[in-house]
């Protein structure tokens, strides 16, 4: 199976997940956007040697995963696929930072390894937050949420059209790629020349399609603005979700968990 048809299936899976109905799915997209952004800022603002402080942050993705019933293996698969860049740049840290930082039992661990693990944890946290935002909200609702948050309508429409026609053109491209694979022999016929012909074909088809879409839209009364019947409501659930996560993030950010634990220790001692 070609890469393109896999992507096609993948995007359809995500859209299916976004169409489910759970507590998290039903929240106003604005509050999910806001909380995801704050979460990412919280994670990124930690020092690179701060491993332990990152761990409590897993509460947020884990909560979404369970409450929204997103399959764990699915998320892990996507994370592994996406981790290459962070892995490539992170793996050099142990070579450049060899100073011993802490001992695990009697094994010395260098600062480089600590910051490498920290990079991977950061990656897992931020990437899973982004993926969970999409699988619990869906592209359509994210665009509408962005519009409500003040993003210009041209850009919102762009996002909306892109996510609509993604399926169609990925499907079309995967057919072109299959045909090219059938025509080629080994590595022959998969080169630059055949790709430029393929791309210009795809381009001209897309161009004509855009014209047809525009004509069809004009027939239905399109005048440059999009209208929607879905109304978002910021209610009690949204306020509770947002406020409680903000409180949690502040708590995590200032090492609240370890503070509580050590307080408990101290009480035990006295």
């Amino acid at each position: 199976m070609s890469k393109l048809s896999e992507i096609f299936i993948d995007i359809s899976d995500m859209e299916k997940m976004a169409g489910r109905s759970s507590l998290v799915h039903r929240l106003d997209p604005r509050c999910k956007l806001l909380v995801t952004l704050l979460f990412t800022i919280t994670v990124v603002s930690f020092n690179r040697y701060d491993l332990m402080a990152l761990i409590p942050c897993f509460t947020y993705p884990l909560f979404l995963l369970i409450a929204a019933e997103i399959p764990f293996t699915y998320l892990m698969k996507k994370l592994v696929l996406a981790s290459i860049f962070a892995l490539m740049l992170g793996i050099v840290n142990p070579f450049f930072d060899r100073e011993t930082m802490l001992y695990l039992g009697s094994v010395p661990i260098s600062g480089g390894w600590v910051s490498f693990i920290s990079i991977m944890l950061r990656f897992a946290l931020t990437a899973s937050a982004a993926l969970l935002l999409l699988t619990t909200t869906g592209m359509y609702n994210i665009s509408r949420g962005l519009e409500k948050l003040g993003v210009p309508q041209v850009f919102v429409m762009q996002l909306f059209f892109l996510s609509r026609y993604l399926f169609l053109l990925t499907d079309e491209a995967s057919r072109l790629v299959r045909a090219r694979a059938a025509r080629s022999f080994g590595q022959r016929g998969l080169g630059l020349n055949s790709l430029s012909h393929l791309l210009s074909t795809l381009f001209m088809r897309s161009f004509d399609r855009a014209e047809n879409i525009y004509i069809a839209m004009r027939c239905r009364g399109f005048n440059g603005r999009m209208r929607s019947v879905t109304k978002f409501r910021w209610g009690g659930a949204e306020t509770i979700f947002t406020v409680s996560w903000i409180v949690f993030f502040i708590f995590f950010r200032f090492n609240g968990l370890s503070y509580v634990i050590s307080l408990y220790h101290q009480l035990n001692i006295y």
Binding site: L4, F161, L169, V177, G191, L198, L202, R209, A210, Y214
Partner: peptide, 24 residues
């Protein structure tokens, strides 16, 4: 004008798909 709005959207989808097509 309005007519470029669908064109921009479809071109975005075109680039998205085009980036997935590899060559050796």
């Amino acid at each position: 004008d309005d007519s470029k709005i669908p064109l921009m959207g479809v071109m975005g989808a075109f680039i998205f798909a085009a980036q997935m097509i590899n060559f050796t």
